[in-house]
Design a protein around this nucleic acid. Structure first.
Lengths: 209, 209
DNA sequence: TCGATTTTGTTCTCGCGTTCACAAACTTCT
DNA sequence: AGAAGTTTGTGAACGCGAGAACAAAATCGA
């Protein structure tokens, strides 16, 4: 489920606040979802709550982390070390959640040798060797849109089975490769769309008035 | 609709490739969606296609852009100029889609005066004045999770009505404020979850074998 | 001009996810 | 011990979005 990370984060917050036990209502409020939905999601993992009491925060946290694979370290490769690649390499949220950036790759020879976040930028051609060496399963694409498909193809070829794509393109990959897409400007455009509609409806409202 | 930006991007790609007219099948393939869904989305905006022919690429592009409010410039404020804030300020995709970063704000006095992407970093206290001066409606939060809610409150107070939140927290705002959330590590965690399940199912498969 | 062909716009159905509502189970107080 | 009060886990209804299927409209060829 895509909501497990949210629950995990909410549980961590509760745990840091010293909460030992919480009800589904509390946790749902912290995660910003309906409590029935939360209970159903959790029951899918197993019966980790106690009726009349609630959930043990740390125990549930561990169970969710285990289910999500967050109890082990995931080696990750980032391709495309531009502005965004820099930020991703430095992003502390990755490391703290069990992701380890084992390599930074870029096609631009000028960037090779540069050290970003303690990792040396290497040629894109090293991809296959790195994947094999570290057992990398997850790749991050932070290149321009034009090169994204090519990078994805070579990632799949090298053995990567999960891709996080920050380039604004639809990637075509085989059925057993998982692709997740984050489009930074899309979200802004959706907000602008709502603003636009607000403004438009206000216009017509004043016109009819 | 949240898919309009995707259609717009696909249309731009088609236009740059010299395509004058395209069918819903073509556009749907480029956008990675079902053609019936695409036609339904477009018909919601109006009847901009011609039966038996298809859609005029540039005309449709203009209509979608107009509907989304992409024909005007949207002033944007970014709060929190850490790694992520830097990357966002430098992200060319914003400017090319009609978003203009009019101010960079940070609570840390050490950062004030620094120039990022041609814009000076200013104190967070200047928020209200900047919003009023430029008529800013959209704010971007790139601060740590701890300060995000406070920043959001002050944004709303200053008159901002749409917030793009990169901090890993659920924001509580009034009903007439739109909040969009991007969680960089959540996406990675979802991919790791699938990898975990793949690995787990493979284990049980070999166990039973 | 008329039929054949293509493609849009729309209706209808299906399936999934969300939410409500309630029974089972656990704690606490008397 | 038993009753009262909580809270989980789940069965059932509701709503919404996705996809299939079809009718309306436009072009093209004869």
């Amino acid at each position: 489920m895509a909501r497990l990370p949210v629950y995990l984060r909410a549980l961590t917050t509760l745990s840091e606040a010293g909460t030992g036990v919480c009800s589904s209502e509390d946790l749902a409020a912290a995660a910003g979802v309906n409590s029935a939905k939360l209970r159903k999601d959790l029951s899918y993992l197993g019966s980790y709550g106690t009726r009349g009491v609630g959930y043990d925060v740390d125990y549930l946290r561990y169970q969710i982390a285990r289910e999500m694979g967050a109890t082990r370290d995931w080696p990750v490769v980032i391709v495309g070390i531009g502005n965004l690649g820099h930020a991703l390499a430095n992003y502390s949220g990755f490391r703290s959640r069990g992701f380890r950036v084992v390599a930074l790759l870029d096609a631009d020879g000028q960037r090779h040798g540069e050290v970003v976040a303690g990792v040396v930028v290497r040629p894109f051609a090293d991809l296959r060797a790195i994947v094999r060496e570290h057992g990398v399963a997850i790749g991050v694409i932070a290149t321009p849109a034009a090169s994204a498909q090519d990078v994805a193809d070579q990632m799949v070829d090298a053995g990567i089975t999960s891709i996080l794509n920050f380039a604004p393109t639809v990637l075509n990959v085989g059925p057993d490769v998982a692709v997740s897409k984050v489009d930074l400007s899309k979200e802004l455009q959706v907000l602008a769309y709502h603003e636009q509609r607000k403004a438009a409806s206000h216009e017509t409202a004043t016109e009819t008035a």
